[in-house]
Computed example of a mutant assay.
Amino acid sequence: MSFTGKYQVEKQENYEEFLEAIGLLSAKTNHKVETEVVQNGNEFIWTQSIPGSTWSNKFTVGQECELLTMMGTKFKVPVTMEGGKISVQFPQYHFTAELVDDKLVMNCVTQGEKGVTFKRISKRI
């Protein structure tokens, strides 16, 4: 199944705890994040938007890619996919995304003693 589509947040778990764990609690917003994904084979353009802010990453599964954090920091990392699940090691957390019943399910897990799992489920719009 292709990830291509637009998605809007339906449900989130541990949002504030996650932001606090990575030192971005001040970036908390009550806006519904909109995610747009364009997939062409193993190539992706992944864009997230809230009113007044948009950030986008272009990557190819199976290759090292230069990505951008939501705060604008660039980093290089390989992007992998196994069993239909995209996996990326961001500097402060591990990100996975998959489609479950036509919903985009993203998980971000922080490292360390107080590992926090942030889960976002978005419906296709």
Rank of each mutant, 00 (worst) to 15 (best):
L19C: 13
E66W: 05
L104D: 01
E98F: 00
N57T: 11
E17R: 08
Y7F: 14
E43F: 01
T117W: 06
F75G: 13
N40Q: 14
K85H: 05
K58H: 13
Q92D: 14
L24D: 05
E82R: 05
E17W: 04
I125P: 12
F75L: 14
I86H: 04
K119L: 06
E10P: 04
E113M: 08
P78Y: 08
Y93E: 12
T47S: 14
E16N: 14
F95D: 06
V88S: 00
M70N: 01
E36I: 13
D101G: 11
A21V: 07
N42V: 01
T69C: 06
K103Q: 12
A21L: 08
A97V: 09
Q48N: 14
V61N: 02
P78W: 09
K114Y: 01
G52L: 05
G23Q: 03
N107S: 08
Q89S: 08
Q48P: 14
F59K: 10
H94R: 10
N42A: 05
A97I: 10
V38T: 15
T4R: 13
G83A: 10
D101L: 06
C108W: 13
E113Y: 02
I86S: 03
F118T: 03
K28G: 08
R120C: 06
R124H: 04
E20M: 09
G83P: 08
F18G: 11
M81P: 01
L67Q: 05
T29L: 00
Y7S: 02
K32D: 11
M1F: 01
T54E: 06
E17C: 07
E36Y: 06
